[in-house]
Design a binder for these strands. Sequence first.
DNA 1: CACTTGTTTCACACAAGTGTGAAAGTTCGT
DNA 2: ACGAACTTTCACACTTGTGTGAAACAAGTG
Lengths: 165, 165
Amino acid sequence: MESHMRDEAALRAFVEDMARLLGDWGFPRMAGRVVFTLMAADERSLSAGDLADRLGVSAAAISGAVRYLSHISMVVREHVPGDRRDRYRLVDDSWYEVTVAKMTLLKTLADAAGEGAAAAGGAGTTAGARLAGMRDFYNWVQDRMPTLLDQWAEEKAAAKAESPG
Amino acid sequence: MESHMRDEAALRAFVEDMARLLGDWGFPRMAGRVVFTLMAADERSLSAGDLADRLGVSAAAISGAVRYLSHISMVVREHVPGDRRDRYRLVDDSWYEVTVAKMTLLKTLADAAGEGAAAAGGAGTTAGARLAGMRDFYNWVQDRMPTLLDQWAEEKAAAKAESPG
DNA sequence: CACTTGTTTCACACAAGTGTGAAAGTTCGT
DNA sequence: ACGAACTTTCACACTTGTGTGAAACAAGTG
């Protein structure tokens, strides 16, 4: 079968879509492009030049993006001795980690709502009760997250055992 | 006890915090301020003038914010006959609705990942397999969301029955 | 019908984020 | 040490979002 055929144009569109989507979440656009270019690459790692070529952007843009991505540990920089080119590799499941990290926003939200509830005069007031409800909801969801993610890991493991290969 | 005492300064800080937090999610800042001012208000509804006063912003800013919020059905405009002032009321649990709506982003993410997987040549390739894994994860989480929210409704109902008022 | 109060629209200023080209800096090969 | 390949830094232009003041508009009141 032809399952190894890459549709480069479609992949570029995919990268751009994802970068925009992540961008809406406050993630730097160019960093998003780099992440998904790496993700869409069959190679284990790419050089800055590769990235610039595939994306059609300046070397400067890549430089900024990988600096950011290294900082937040989404890519690792692999310096190959005897080669002037640094290579960049995606940390395994980094998109998963980022997703989980974003979930901590719920805790922040819950805490802020709690502050508001207290400032509004506690649950005895209309506003206080409303804000306490909000706090409770976000805390509750936040608490369930670890369980949810564990379930995913389990199901994935089960599926793998069922059809191993 | 003093549970009906409002700390106006703290509430202003709360409103500003929330507006910023929502802002990071791509939600217009001023609209966020209006939502949380309404949420932090003991009154059922506020006029545009009230909102402008409490927030210390121009009437124009309020006008734009409520137009947006009405559009996405987060506030309702109540026109009281015999009064020039329109009143704005928060739709019940609108923050909850917004949260749920945001979850649909997961579906979008999953779909895009699926596109990418196909374009990369399917699960037989390194990139294809990686992207398919991403697609599966977001689809899975998306699928569990309704269940999760049902659980919240149940627990809330149970808690209410246990200590009713 | 004029007056007053309240709301909306519009042009503008201001700030933040984004990507570029060019210059400077770094690292390897000879 | 020199030159070539590669990367980083920096000043700039461009775009987008945000809020303001002023003027236009709308609706009730005397």
